[in-house]
Write a protein that binds this DNA or RNA. Structure first.
Lengths: 216, 216
DNA sequence: CGGGATCCGTAAGGATACTG
DNA sequence: CAGTATCCTTACGGATCCCG
C-alpha cells in the first residue's frame, strides 16, 4: 500500500512503484503464462517467503495489476490472474527476459527452471522476422529434465505452452541450459556431439531452432 | 555486493538481479539520455540517499551495466555512462515507461519532472507508424516550467534532446502534466481553453502532437 | 565543489511455525 | 489450500561528515 514514492512524475518511476518491488515481476512473469492459485505460485517461486508472496499479491491487486478471483462452486478455488492492464506488461517482461538472458551463463548451484520460465524464455527470444523469411511452419517439443513445453512456429507467429504436443516435427531434449547453442557459442552439431542436446531431428534442425530463438 | 539471487535460471530473474534493486532503473533511465557525473545523477534523483546512489553505481558497474570513467586532464571529472550492454536496456526502459505512463494520473505533491524524464517520456510514447503515415517532418519545442526539450519527428524517426531548437515548427508550453491531452481525455482545443497548454501553433498542431506521442 | 563514507533509526525481506 | 503470525536480519532512508 505505502510503496515508497520516487517523487518523480515519470512513467518509469510509476512503473517501478507498481511492479518494482522484489519478486513482483517474477510473479507477473508466471501469471503471464496463465492464471494460478496461491500454491501454484509458491511452487513456481520456491524461494519466495510466503508472507512476501501474500504481500506482493495484495499490492499488485491494489495497483490494478492482478485480480483475485474466487472460482464458482464447487471448486471455490482462489485464483490470481492478471488484469488487462497487468497483461500489458507482456512486452516489458519479454524485453527484460531477452536482455537478462544474455547474462545467464552457466547454471548456478541451486538455480531451477520451471515450465513457466521455459515458456516465457521461448516467447522472449523468438524472432518473427527470421521465421517469416523461411515461411517456417514447425512444431517443437522441448524437454528439460521432466519439464516439457512445445512451440508452434507458423510464418511469423508463435504459440508456446506447457506440456507435449501431438506429432511434433522436432523433439529437442536438453541435458543442460541451451544458452551456448542459442547464443552461438556452439552450433547444432557441437551441441549433439557434446551431449548437451539429443533430438529426433538433425543438427540442421537444431541450428534452425537456434536461429528462431537466439540469445542476443 | 552479491545481490540476493532468485534461484532461477531465467532471463527475467537475472535481469532483476542486475537492475531490479530500488533506484537502479531510474539511474539507468537518466544515463540513457547521456553520461553523467555523480552530482548530475543526484540532481536528477533528488530523493535518492547518497549512499544508495554510490552503492547502486558500484553494483551496476560490477554487473557490466555502467562504466565509471575518469575524463582526461585537465578535467579529470568522473563520469558514469552505460556500457553497450547497459545501453541495450533502452527498449526495456521505454516499454516500462510506456506502461507506467498510463498510471501517472495527476501530479502528486512533491513529485518533480526533469529534462531527462521529458526526453525519455517522448521517446517512450512516440509512435513511428503514425508519424510515417503522414510523412511528417516537424520540430517541436516543449517547455515545462523552466525545462526545455525539443523533438524532431521525421517520417518514422525521432530525435529528442534537452534544450531549445532553432526555429521549431511548434512551441508547446505546458502549464501542467500533459497526460490528459496525450491519453485522449481532452483534445487540443480543450487543452488550450483550460489553459493547460499554450502554443504558437494551433489546436490541430496539439492534436497531431498527441497522435504522435499518445499515452496508451 | 565533486565524490563520496559513516552513522543510525526504521521499514522491508527472509525463515519458520501455525491456523481457519 | 490459502494464507497469518512471529522473530530475526538485512536493506533502505535521512542526516551528517569527510577529503582532495
Amino acid at each position: 500500500m505505502t510503496t515508497k514514492s520516487y517523487g518523480q512524475y515519470c512513467g518509469v518511476a510509476r512503473a517501478m512503484e507498481l511492479v518494482g518491488e522484489r519478486w513482483a515481476l517474477l510473479i507477473v512473469r508466471d501469471l503471464l503464462v496463465g492464471p494460478k492459485r496461491y500454491t501454484d505460485l509458491r511452487a513456481g517461486l520456491p524461494k519466495i517467503p510466503t508472507n512476501v508472496l501474500a504481500t506482493r499479491l495484495k499490492e499488485l491487486e491494489q495497483g490494478g495489476v492482478v485480480a483475485r478471483r474466487v472460482e464458482p462452486s464447487p471448486s471455490r478455488a482462489i485464483v490470481y490472474e492478471l488484469t488487462p492492464y497487468g497483461a500489458d506488461l507482456d512486452q516489458v517482461v519479454l524485453a527484460l527476459g531477452r536482455w537478462g538472458a544474455r547474462s545467464l551463463g552457466e547454471l548456478r548451484p541451486g538455480e531451477i527452471v520451471t515450465t513457466d520460465i521455459l515458456v516465457m524464455a521461448l516467447r522472449s527470444t523468438f524472432r518473427p522476422d527470421r521465421a517469416k523469411k523461411v515461411r517456417a511452419r514447425v512444431s517443437y517439443e522441448l524437454r528439460f529434465g521432466d519439464l516439457v513445453v512445445h512451440a508452434l512456429v507458423d510464418d511469423e507467429s508463435l504459440e508456446v505452452a506447457a506440456g507435449p504436443i501431438d506429432k511434433p516435427n522436432v523433439v529437442i531434449e536438453a541435458r543442460g541450459p541451451l544458452s551456448p547453442l542459442l547464443n552461438g557459442e556452439i552450433d547444432g552439431e557441437a551441441a549433439l556431439k557434446t551431449g548437451l542436446v539429443t533430438t529426433d531431428g538433425t543438427a540442421a534442425d537444431l541450428n534452425r531452432f537456434a536461429q528462431f530463438f537466439p540469445i542476443q
